[in-house]
């Protein structure tokens, strides 16, 4: 399993709508920030392709400005080798 950290920037006045929309998606954990307008979304996925697809879905959500990958961890995958 890969674990990726995605930065999601959104229009701050729509915070609740954005958080609700993201929480409705599968296999994502939302970590809020004190500042607002930005959150960390952690994706657990079998492959990088899934991370890419989920990141794209985040970026396409209404009121989301952009979703960017920042971090990826392969530790569990490498343990399988």
């Amino acid at each position: 399993m890969l674990i990726a950290g995605i930065l999601v920037e959104y229009e701050n006045e729509y915070e609740q709508e954005v958080l609700d929309a993201i929480r409705a998606l599968d296999d994502m954990t939302v970590y809020e920030t004190e500042e607002g307008g930005k959150i960390a979304v952690v994706i657990e996925a079998e492959s990088r392709k899934v991370i890419e697809e989920k990141t794209s879905r985040l970026g396409e959500l209404d009121k989301v400005i952009i979703a960017l990958p920042v971090y990826v961890n392969y530790e569990e995958e490498l343990e399988k080798i």
């Binding site: 674990i3 990726a4 950290g5 995605i6 930065l7 920037e9 954990t29 970590y31 920030t33 004190e34 500042e35 930005k38 960390a40 979304v41 952690v42 920042v70 971090y71 961890n73």
Partner: peptide
């Protein structure tokens, strides 16, 4: 992973 994102975003 969340911490890395927060650091990158300065949050």
């Amino acid at each position: 992973a969340a911490g890395a994102v927060m650091t990158a975003a300065g949050c």
